[in-house]
Design a protein around this nucleic acid. Structure first.
Lengths: 331, 331
DNA sequence: ATGAAAGCGCTAACAT
DNA sequence: ATGTTAGCGCTTTCAT
């Protein structure tokens, strides 16, 4: 058997509860006692049994992280590790752990979530995606499990954190307009994804604000989120003689498009895209501006919101919808 | 308070221990009793408290997953979600959970691992990367925590699963030779990473076996693992008039190179690369063969090996080094 | 095949 | 400021 709180207490000449209070850094324990107990803990290489703590305190100090299905191209996007870094950062600060939701299909995933939520292994859930009519999210709401979504779900009765996609679509487009562009195309993606639709709406509003007519033939939504997709789109679909600016929703797609333009020596088109973080290492002939999405902040805010939601002071039913600021970088 | 095993027992007219046995599907309980108890569990929406189970049984049914630092380009590689899928699959089968290792630097990560290992929150660790002289791996060994590395670490006293990188480097190169190539370049990466060095060695051996002289000027190792890196390499460094074949260690890099070749209408060069899984959606002018690494199997084998390592029957000290078969696909 | 009872290692009143 | 004590909800001998 491993070494327990009683062993430490005995050796330190105090009661187990005192050791427990030292672990929790309870202010009612004198510094002197704390130091003595801590010395003994170190000396004996004592570590509290997390499951015993969890059982006794009814706090698992763990959040569940719900990922999209592993086949999703999502994982290849810098957004994922960036937001994960933000979550890590905040969780580490609070000394909380992250439990991954396991499962290869919705049914498996739901069973697992059910188990860890009802089994009190997690105190809350972070959804790392927002999809339409998500059964897992519905489940979390049904069992009244605190949850926060990263992205904008089709469900306002839930906490979520996201960029203001309409706004950044607007700002990005406006920035191109201010640089003198008048024929601006938009490369989006699946319009069922809200952030795509929202950025598109912002794009549209910016055009209207500048008195530029919205031309549906300049909208490219039939595309996935990989560089090769952008490359092929640029090669086969886009007529660059017709445009002088391009708003690109996905940064990997933008990379593919930029690659294509470089080879063709097309230089008279402005690009703007949205970036989870700045790599800064791509030298290109093309003028590429970007909107920094500060995705790591999205991650850390999501964690904070979950802590707020856990707070028992918050008797009332309310939902936090938070938008993280993005900042524009023009070149 | 939530509903407990006693509540179920009372309602089912049995002892708590009987309910516990039903949960564990203990064969000494009659089918009749099992059915009755299960019905009551369902009726009362009972879920066992995982922390209470863990405390009483001394089994957390959880493995820790140690990821590389979140800034790593690793996350953008299809390898990551693919191997994660394999891990998921196997863990779900065994009804185990995955706890993520939290922390933004080695020190934080080590503290966290120390806590979850000594605190009995995890029964073993899966390292999702292999780096030289890894302090976290050393730590796991020091505290005698069962661990398995995905990749080939510089440490043979540990379990690991990987592809046989020397062999697949050899096979890939040989395949080009059989297709008639004689001037074959190799695009690798950081030679400090063992899989890069190993694939390179296989490449070298294949050349020697065919009587082709190894030409250091055809080796490109100064490159990162993103499509843009491949693109730039192809554009600025590689003289395609000098070669007729190209072995490319990383599939994203290969994508970038292929993009470049497509734009230049260079078609008289064979490409071969290594792929975590087959996307199959890239139509290119270039002949691209690939070695399917079956990375999802690497993930599931890693989990199985950890279970083996946990098995108390294995009194002896031994280390499993397992190589997952890759298969060659030529076009 | 099932029940009774003793913990697992910790926290949290309640004392003092 | 610290000790005493009674659980937290489950598993697991040991009985029968």
């Amino acid at each position: 058997m491993a070494i327990t709180i009683r062993d430490v207490a005995k050796r330190a000449g105090v009661a187990p509860s005192t050791v427990s209070r030292v672990i929790a850094d309870n202010p009612s324990i004198s510094e002197k006692t704390k130091n003595k107990v801590r010395a003994v803990m170190k000396e004996m290489n004592y570590f509290p049994n997390i499951y015993a703590q969890g059982l006794a305190s009814a706090h698992s100090k763990t959040f569940g992280l719900v990922l999209p299905l592993a086949t999703d191209a999502f994982y290849q996007n810098p957004f994922f590790p960036t937001v994960l870094r933000g979550i890590n950062f905040e969780m580490a600060k609070h000394d909380y752990s992250i439990l991954l939701s396991v499962g290869l299909d919705d049914d498996q995933r739901q069973k697992h979530i059910e188990k860890i939520v009802n089994g009190k292994q997690v105190e809350g859930l972070i959804f790392l995606y927002a999809s339409k009519n998500d059964p897992l999210l519905r489940f979390a709401q049904k069992v009244n499990c605190p949850a926060v979504v990263i992205g904008s779900p089709d469900n306002t009765k839930v906490h979520f954190v996201d960029n203001d996609n309409e706004l950044i679509g607007y700002q990005a487009t406006k920035s191109l307009i201010q640089q003198g562009c008048t024929r601006i195309a938009y490369v989006g993606g699946d319009m069922n994804q809200f952030f795509i639709a929202d950025r598109h709406n912002g794009y549209k509003r910016a055009l209207e604000g500048a008195g530029i007519i919205y031309d549906p033939s300049l909208i490219y939504n039939d595309i996935n989120f990989l560089p090769s997709d952008g490359y092929e789109l640029a090669q086969n679909k886009i007529d660059f003689s017709q445009i002088d600016g391009l708003v690109i929703s996905d940064e990997l797609v933008a990379e593919g498009i930029r690659n294509y333009l470089d080879t063709q020596d097309i230089q008279d088109v402005h690009l703007i895209t949205f970036s989870a973080y700045r790599q800064g290492n791509t030298q290109s002939m093309i003028k590429t501006s970007y909107v920094n999405l500060n995705s790591h902040i999205i991650g850390s805010r999501a964690v904070d919101i979950l802590f707020e939601a856990l707070d028992p002071d918050q008797a009332s039913t309310r939902f936090i919808h938070e938008y993280v600021d993005a900042d524009l970088h023009t070149t």
